[in-house]
Amino acid sequence: MKSLSTLLVGCLAVPLAGAQIPGTPQLRSGDIPELVITKSGHFDGKSLYGYMDGGAELYREYGFVDLTVQEMQVKEQQLLVELFRMRDPLAAFGIFSVSRGDCRGEDTTARYWCHTSGQVLCAAGCYLVKVQRLTSGSGGSGLAGVVARRLLQRLPDSGSVLLPWISGPTHAQDWQRKAILVFGPLGLQNGFPDWVDPLEEGAYHSITIVPWDIEGKPVTIGWIHCDSAPAASSLEGHIAQDTRPAWQYIRRCEGNSFLVIEAELPAEQLARFAGTLLNH
């Protein structure tokens, strides 16, 4: 993500270097020893275009409310902190789930936490927190985590959503952590591009995708939620035209939702697995 040096004016931001933005959770100089806020900005509504241009569409698809950006320095390390407020905790989890990629570690500070060598990403309540290093070198990775934890303490609600439809099965806790929540085509493109084609034209409310494995064989579970029964029927018909060999499909007849499984499993093994899912 870009730095702030030239983006602030013209947005809703208070475009002053290091200025505090009223009414928004944020860090302050001195919150961490030697931390200095060098730049701050605030973007809401469509002004996100001014910050990230085409990249804004993904956040808007998830229900973006506003973004507070702070650039900060701790000794030689420069960090960029982005705090996205989304419309609700599901939306915050959703944007987290399609942005996290392969994590090198988790943290108990937030239920949904992911860090790599250059970045910490976490979802808590309605917020997505992204702390990114702007300078290379040793030490910055741990610092990003410290900054993220400090900011999480400032958030009004640090609770995190649980996806109710996967809370029952044995592996629910792991599934919650691996789940990818999609509300539209851009989320799908970023979070699970292999399903873009069969679902591209479909009208759905949300899709929860869990990559998993059974006895070493990859399995992808998809709970597809539509706005109405006719919409679900229409989407089922559309999916049925896809010809990928590993897709297996089980219709869930109750409500507006149905289940898709992608796996190369014998029919009986698949049925047992599907039965487990449908029984919850």
Partner: peptide, 8 residues
């Protein structure tokens, strides 16, 4: 070959 199944 497609391997979709539907329990009707």
């Amino acid at each position: 070959m497609s391997r979709f199944f539907e329990p009707g």
